[in-house]
C-alpha cells in the first residue's frame, strides 16, 4: 500500500510492469482435532482457538458439529472439518442437510458408515477445487461400538481407532499410536507386543486432556479451550476444558 505514495510520477509509468491483482481462495485457520473410538463410545475433541497468521480471531469458536435427529440419541454423529474453516463450515452445513434428506428419502437413520461414504462423495465432488480440510466423522455403529472415520481433503478415507487432524496432528499422532494402539510396547513377562484394547472412557478423557495440554505448550495454533464431544447410547455429551491462552 505504501508503494502508491512513494512511486514515481505518472509520466514514468510507461515502461513499468503492469499492476497485478490476484485472489487466493484458501486460508488456514489453525486448530487441531482428535478422535478416539471405544467399546461403547466415540469421542471427538478439538481446541476452540481460531487464527489467521499470528492473529487470534477468537478464543472460543467451537468446531465439533453434531448431526442429530437421525433417529434417537444413540444415532448422533459428530463431525469436524479442520483447516480452512470457511470450507469446513460449508462442508458440515451441506452434510447436515444431506443427512436430513437421507432420513426423509429412506425413512431410516443415517449410519456412521453411510455418513462416511457420503462425506467421501461430497469431498470428491469438489476434486478440482477441494474443500481445504481434514475431516473426521465419529459415532456409534449398529451394535453400539464407537467408530471413527478420517478423510483427506479430496475424500480418501479410512476407519480407525483414533486419529488426530489439523495443525498439531504431527505432534499428537505418535502419542496416540503409543498410548492408544500400544505401538512399540512389549509385555514384560512374555516379550510379545502388547495388543491394543478398548480404553475406558475415563482413561481416554485423561489422555485427550493431557495430549492437548502438551500440544498447547509447543504449538502456537493450539490453545484457549478444549471442546470434547462424547457420543454414547445416551446421546452426545459436551465437555469443556481450559487450555493455556498464550
Amino acid at each position: 500500500m505504501y508503494a502508491e505514495h512513494f512511486s514515481e510520477p505518472a509520466t514514468s509509468h510507461v515502461a513499468s510492469a503492469p499492476i497485478e491483482h490476484q485472489f487466493y481462495p484458501y486460508a488456514s485457520n489453525g486448530g487441531t482435532i482428535l478422535a478416539i473410538a471405544g467399546a461403547d463410545y466415540a469421542l471427538l475433541a478439538g481446541d476452540t482457538r481460531h487464527i489467521t497468521g499470528y492473529s487470534i480471531n477468537t478464543r472460543f469458536r467451537p468446531s465439533i458439529h453434531t448431526l442429530e435427529n437421525l433417529g434417537g440419541p444413540e444415532r448422533a454423529i459428530v463431525v469436524a472439518a479442520n483447516g480452512f474453516s470457511a470450507d469446513g463450515d460449508a462442508l458440515v452445513r451441506r452434510l447436515a442437510q444431506r443427512a436430513e434428506w437421507y432420513t426423509y428419502n429412506h425413512n431410516k437413520p443415517l449410519s456412521v458408515s453411510a455418513c462416511a461414504r457420503l462425506v467421501q462423495t461430497m469431498l470428491y465432488g469438489k476434486r478440482t477445487f477441494p474443500y481445504y480440510v481434514h475431516t473426521i466423522v465419529a459415532g456409534l455403529d449398529e451394535s453400539g461400538r464407537g467408530e471413527v472415520y478420517s478423510f483427506d481433503p479430496v475424500g480418501s478415507y479410512e476407519r480407525e481407532q483414533c486419529r488426530a487432524g489439523g495443525s498439531a496432528a504431527s505432534l499428537l499422532m505418535p502419542f496416540l499410536d503409543n498410548q492408544v494402539n500400544k505401538k512399540n510396547q512389549y509385555d514384560a513377562a512374555t516379550g510379545l507386543p502388547q495388543v491394543a484394547t478398548d480404553l475406558p472412557l475415563e482413561e481416554t478423557l485423561k489422555l485427550v486432556k493431557d495430549a492437548f495440554s502438551s500440544v498447547t505448550e509447543r504449538h502456537i495454533h493450539v490453545g484457549d479451550y478444549l471442546e470434547i464431544k462424547i457420543v454414547t447410547k445416551e446421546g452426545v455429551k459436551v465437555e469443556y476444558f481450559p487450555l493455556k491462552r498464550d
Binding site: M173, P174, N178, V215, R218
Partner: peptide, 11 residues
C-alpha cells in the same frame, strides 16, 4: 522434530 516434541512434551 515435530513428532519428537509431541512425544517428549507428554512422556
Amino acid at each position: 522434530s515435530h513428532q519428537l516434541f509431541g512425544m517428549c512434551e507428554s512422556l
